[in-house]
């Protein structure tokens, strides 16, 4: 049960949110793209081990989409930011001791 910082409502349990995969994949101008480029937009999303800038929507709360840095190994939560605002830097690497909770 992740504890997710909704920029509008504050910390809320994961079950109030829906996931939206990689953040910042803009809808391209479809007619300028080759099939291959279009397929990439349709299907390819970042899947890194470590910090991932991803989208969430607080569907059971304010209903707003936002972006979040989250670590896919440790589940550490980094900063959240609103769409079309400046993306914060990825948090630093985790220490040797294990996850910060």
């Amino acid at each position: 049960m992740l504890y997710i910082p909704c920029p509008h409502c504050g910390l809320r349990n994961e079950t109030e949110f829906h996931y939206g995969a990689e953040a910042g994949v803009a809808y391209p101008e479809p007619n300028t793209l080759t099939d291959s480029e279009w397929a990439k937009y349709l299907h390819i999303r970042a899947n890194p081990k470590g910090w991932l800038a991803e989208r969430w929507v607080h569907y059971a709360g304010c209903g707003r989409w936002f972006n979040l840095w989250r670590n896919t190994i440790t589940h550490e939560i980094g900063p959240a930011w609103l769409p079309f605002t400046t993306k914060p830097k990825a948090p630093g690497n985790i220490g040797q001791e294990g996850p910060r909770v």
Partner: peptide, 13 residues
């Protein structure tokens, strides 16, 4: 509804 909101909020603000 989620689909409409997603496009409004994340693509066409």
């Amino acid at each position: 509804l989620a689909w409409l909101e997603e496009w409004l909020q994340t693509e066409w603000p």
